[in-house]
Design a binder for these strands. Structure first.
Ligand SMILES: [Mn+2]
Ligand SMILES: [Mn+2]
Ligand SMILES: [Zn+2]
Ligand SMILES: [Zn+2]
Lengths: 132, 132
DNA sequence: TACCAAGTTGTAATGATTACAAACAAACTA
DNA sequence: TAGTTTGTTTGTAATCATTACAACTTGGTA
């Protein structure tokens, strides 16, 4: 439950935080800051965009959400699914799909002598909807 | 040779294009637009930053270079090595290393029913220099 | 009730990139 | 050769997501 998630990471529970986190988790669209803002406006007409940015920064820092970025797109997208996974970005419709792959390099701790902390990966192409 | 590379993709050979392409290929730093600009200033003091952006766009479109982008960094980096490979970004010093891995997913043409055109992947962590 | 810390808000700044129009240059043509 | 076209370069202005910052609000606590 949303309130507990916030509590668990010692973030004070507020209307804005609960609803922003809820929105990011429940919608699977990997929304942008502006999409979150537009949604929040409908339930909280005076919310500030700065609050959206402050909130996603807190949520991200406490690992309640992840952020992702694609080449050629200038905005960050937010992801409520925090378990390691990859993405597929459709070059035609812009939809983002979660990709579950078990990659050999995923669990590696070192590569070429460098210590790995994070792995980022995504595919682009034409999604199955757009292929129809 | 640089001139031939340009010719091969039907880009007119100019002083700016030759030197920008040469710089990106020979330096292995994956330079930013501004790094390219700063270098070009030393050999062509009146070059415009717009020329740098125009040029990397042309070079990228004709596949003479690739561009890459990292989460949390706001600038695009340019890569003269166009064969498929991945990267390692050091969280401490910011250096970017090429990573040659033969990944099972690299050659795939489809995933979950989506047609794959491109694969992007990178690791972050502490590089072997910074570990010392 | 008064105070304090944290959260929220609005506005201004940042900074990489793009848009656009003028200047320039090399390649064609009459 | 002079004039024309086409593509390249240049400088300036705009864009736009994100951040900085200061003022305002709120909820808990003494
Ligand atoms: Mn996801
Ligand atoms: Mn590279
Ligand atoms: Zn699609
Ligand atoms: Zn390093």
């Amino acid at each position: 439950m949303i309130t507990n998630k916030l509590k668990k990471v010692s973030l004070k529970s507020t209307f804005q935080r609960e609803n922003i986190l809820e929105y990011i988790i429940s919608r699977k669209e990997h929304p942008t800051a502006d999409m979150i803002y537009q949604y929040m406006l409908t339930i909280s007409p005076c919310i500030s965009k700065t609050t959206v940015y402050n909130t996603v920064k807190s949520l991200n820092k406490t690992n309640l959400i992840k952020s992702i970025k694609f080449l050629g797109k200038d905005e960050i997208r937010y992801d409520g699914t925090v378990d390691a996974h990859h993405h597929f970005l459709c070059e035609k419709c812009g939809r983002i799909y979660d990709i579950e792959i078990q990659c050999q390099h995923f669990k590696k701790e070192n590569i070429d002598g460098h210590k790995i902390n994070n792995v980022y990966a995504y595919f682009t192409g034409i999604c199955k909807e757009c292929k129809k």
